[in-house]
Design a protein around this nucleic acid. Structure first.
Lengths: 211, 211, 211, 211
DNA sequence: GATGAATGAGACTTCATTCAT
DNA sequence: AATGAATGAAGTCTCATTCAT
């Protein structure tokens, strides 16, 4: 009876416990992203949610590292599927500019900033499986994206160019944008509108290049 | 009297000391890049170069963090100047493809992989000055590059496009390439030839887009 | 109303509870003997019998130490009486070899191996009363045994020797045998037949010495 | 350059360190024997010798268990050789009573009480090698002792009996004596004279049996 | 310059025990 | 009776740093 799935038949106590666990993960994620895994003590996590020191080992018997792994697992789980599905169901008749914008948003919104920071900064601490996930995600997106671009090319909406490289170019742009916003950006928090404008600018330029 | 510059009048003892210091920095850099700053103990560094535990504070009185800062300082020092100079002296008559390839190589070779990993992973530990260096480097390269591209555009070698965005696109591509090779790549060590081919492919595609 | 004695008028719930309690004691005894008291957590005991963590304090309100004391109490209770009775009722006409063998078996069978390990290893944790039991048992056995041996001596079945020391010699032999089988033996589990043969050999040799 | 062997060329600092290490082992041995391994905290050991908390890991990097293993190693090392040598060099012309007394004293004096308590109580924590040492010691002593007894038998000083079993009987007696003095005896500390008298009594009785 | 013993704060973790449900 | 979340003291261990030699 998985704690995270089974929601019916849970007593209020189970619910409370599930809530604690979730809160613990959220707080740890925030702190890990902010200050780094090694710079965040378990005590600090506990204090942040007003929890007794030992309780962490009730929820995560293998300790602090299990928390990190669980955070990454929970945050990435299903994301490839979501991405693949979204890309697969992309409407072929939608204007290409709208399509690219939509894809960009899916990637950017899907990738929460805290997760990105953790994945990059704490990568040596991740499991092999999780490290592999990073690579696979890129490849998947590029693969499916190049298929979509190819269709547009055949319809004459784009010049005849190497689709794979077009896809890589698109992903590189988004990646740069994300890294700038998370790792390098540090404190600069631009507002949503400005962010959107930046994405739009990127995509319009790409289209100009590809037409 | 900077230890690393002044070479005349050094006794053999001074030379030995300078050698030790250099070795310490190299080893620390390697370990920091491999396992992260917080996961590398000073003891580990000392053991790696067969040095006594206390001696680290002779070379770096402010301790471990000073080592990190020195590594970053030494590794980045003069790099912007080198880049600026290289970009400024770029031959205007060189075929554009060769020019872009040369620039790409300057960036890639300039940026040693260990440094990149450290700059990205340990960014919160860097001094403000060093953090700023990261941003300035990008801006500098993009600025000068866009000037170079504009010249080519005026000569009719490129389509009329936004030069700033072209430059960003170029830098994003290189950045993606570097990140793939360092942070994400993990164990995959491609050989030099394959790396060169990849860079060439990127540039040829960019040129195709821009013409 | 001792839970382990009173069997009539028990509801099925009482029976279930009595069963649990017994199972808990058995499992704890096994684990304490195997890994030591301090190396066995209450959680481990609970998991082993599939019991909730808190329930241990329903059965043993004073906690873990009470379990140890109860194990020792239950295991030793009545054993001196049994021994005394068995020794007292020893048939005076039985061949002396059979008598000694019978006594040896009474001691060995009476002393279950897990109990011996616990008594010796965790002796500092026992109550004073229980510690005293250990000494008294030895003295009792030696005292009564020496009486039995004296009778045989008077009947001319044995040489004229110090009966007390004969008894001690007998007990020492059995003790060595038991310690070899429990503390030192570790993994070596000889079968019953071989064990019996060893005891017989010991006794035949003693008789040879004493005749 | 082994710390415990090389004594020449040691600076006063080395000597001081060696002294500390020895003191640490002695104190830990005493405390482990007194209160048990799990009941003795590292802090307690440190306090007992006025040492800083972390220093234990300078001397024993693998921690508390390494201290126990070192204690057992140091205490047992060379003891078999000593025993074997002493038994081998036993004067064949010495009166048999004196010989047995001497052997008893070698065993008893060789076996320091703290070590015995630790070996028996903490046996599950020992290395396999150390556990094996216990068995081997018994076998060795019994083997050599039975050779010595056989010689006496051939000289007519003893009856014709099974030498191996005689040796076992001797060792069992000593073993019982030791266990009584250490594990079971608890606080009772008899004086040396009384102890000697007890051993003598044991041996005289054995000789009476064997003649 | 060099050594490594010494320090002690603080990290992670375990565990018996309590208690609301 | 039963559950398992909650508690917090205490344990083991790590580590950057200091300092006498």
């Amino acid at each position: 009876m998985s704690k995270s799935v089974q929601k019916e038949g849970m007593t209020s106590r189970d619910l409370q416990a599930a809530k604690r666990r979730k809160q613990l993960l959220q707080t740890a994620k925030k702190l890990f992203a902010e200050k780094g895994y090694h710079n965040t003590s378990t005590k600090e996590i506990n204090r942040a949610i007003g929890m007794a020191d030992g309780l962490i080992y009730h929820y995560f018997p293998k300790g602090k590292l299990e928390i990190l792994h669980t955070i990454v697992q929970d945050s990435t789980e299903g994301k490839i599927q979501q991405l693949e599905k979204a890309l697969k169901n992309m409407d072929a008749d939608m204007p290409i500019r709208d399509m690219l914008l939509k894809i960009a948003h899916i990637i950017v919104d899907n990738a929460d900033n805290e997760l990105i920071v953790i994945l990059i900064r704490e990568q040596p601490l991740l499991t092999d499986e999780q490290t592999e996930w990073l690579t696979r995600t890129f490849d998947t997106v590029i693969g499916q994206l190049s298929v979509l671009l190819e269709k547009r090319m055949l319809k004459g909406e784009l010049r005849r160019l190497n689709c794979k490289l077009m896809a890589r170019q698109f992903v590189s742009s988004i990646q740069s944008y994300l890294i700038e916003q998370t790792i390098l950006g540090g404190g600069k928090h631009r507002d949503q509108t400005e962010s959107d404008k930046h994405l739009m600018e990127l995509i319009d330029f790409l289209l100009e290049c590809w037409r």
